[in-house]
């Protein structure tokens, strides 16, 4: 199995630089990092990739059972880290990939030096004494809206990819469109993401962690970010002057600066 092709892995920067691995969240692919990742390529070995099912990953590698839970995505992340034999890794995970990253650092602590969580949430659905921001019925509605939004894609594109192995340009064409995903894959990823509960993982994260919180993030509200920072054994909580759930797109310079400042501070310490 060629993990580098399967996960569409891209590597930038000096080969002897400290590895900086960017993991994308639900809804998009590694192109989310295109305004942030290159800013580190002068001194870090910058790695971006697509989880199987998204972006330019190999559609044939998608296994509905494997990716029904976040464990499948954690396996992807660790596969990429192992394939490049990375050590002393700084892991940057956005949204659900922050939790996937937490799981990865717990599973193989020796490979990771530190972690940056961008807009993390360990649980999206409200629970007793816990506000995630969403009810179970909200998630069901999201799943319905996914079916609706992917309907046109489903009919037009799926047969092209599935039925034309001898026409790889159709698959390539797809990678040109951002945030495209097979509707079944999107639905399963959404279920794995929004019905997950990683609260118990947080105290077990073995590396120092920067929590980047946006103002006005309805997916991962301020209280949730504060909860994450509190639960982590070694955390720094930074509020970005950015709105929405994707500061790497809405405020890429601020995001890169916040990550760079924290990393420089740790290197100097």
């Amino acid at each position: 199995m060629d993990v580098l092709a399967r996960n569409n892995v891209t590597v930038l920067g000096p080969a002897d630089g400290q590895p900086l691995v960017f993991a994308h969240g639900f809804g998009c692919d590694q192109s989310m990092w295109r305004h942030v990742a290159p800013a580190f390529a002068d001194r870090y070995r910058v790695v971006t990739f697509d989880f199987v099912g998204g972006g330019g990953s190999d559609p044939a590698a998608y296994d509905p059972d494997k990716y029904a839970t976040l464990d499948g995505y954690r396996a992807d992340l660790l596969d990429v880290v192992r394939a490049l034999d990375l050590r002393d890794v700084v892991l940057v995970g956005h949204s659900v990939a922050a939790m996937v990253g937490a799981m990865a650092t717990i599973a193989e602590p020796d490979r990771f030096a530190s972690m940056v969580m961008v807009g993390p949430s360990p649980r999206y659905v409200d629970d007793e004494n816990y506000i995630g921001g969403f009810g179970r019925e909200d998630i069901d509605e999201l799943l319905t809206s996914l079916s609706s939004n992917y309907l046109g894609w489903s009919a037009a594109m799926a047969p092209a990819i599935v039925g034309n192995p001898d026409r790889p340009e159709l698959g390539h064409e797809l990678t040109e469109a951002f945030c495209r995903m097979d509707p079944e894959v999107a639905r399963r990823f959404a279920e794995a993401t929004f019905l997950s509960d990683n609260r118990d993982d947080l105290p077990r994260v073995p590396v120092p962690t920067l929590v980047l919180q946006c103002r006005d993030d309805i997916i991962a509200p301020m209280e949730v970010g504060e909860y994450v920072a509190e639960q982590l054994p070694d955390s720094t909580f930074v509020v970005l002057e950015a709105t929405g759930h994707c500061p790497q797109l809405s405020a890429p310079v601020l995001t890169a600066e916040a990550i760079g400042t924290w990393l420089d501070g740790r290197a100097a310490a």
Binding site: G25, F26, G27, C28, S31, M32, R34, S95, F134, G135, D138, I139, D140, E141, L142, L143, T144, S145, L146, N149, F178, C179, F194, D217, I218, I219, G244, H245, C246, L249, S250
Partner: peptide, 20 residues
């Protein structure tokens, strides 16, 4: 938007709008 629509907005609409 409805809550489900808000998630879709934040995870799809807003990123795609900014990128494309």
């Amino acid at each position: 938007l409805t809550p489900g629509g808000r998630i879709f907005h934040e995870t799809h609409y807003a990123p795609m709008l900014r990128m494309q």
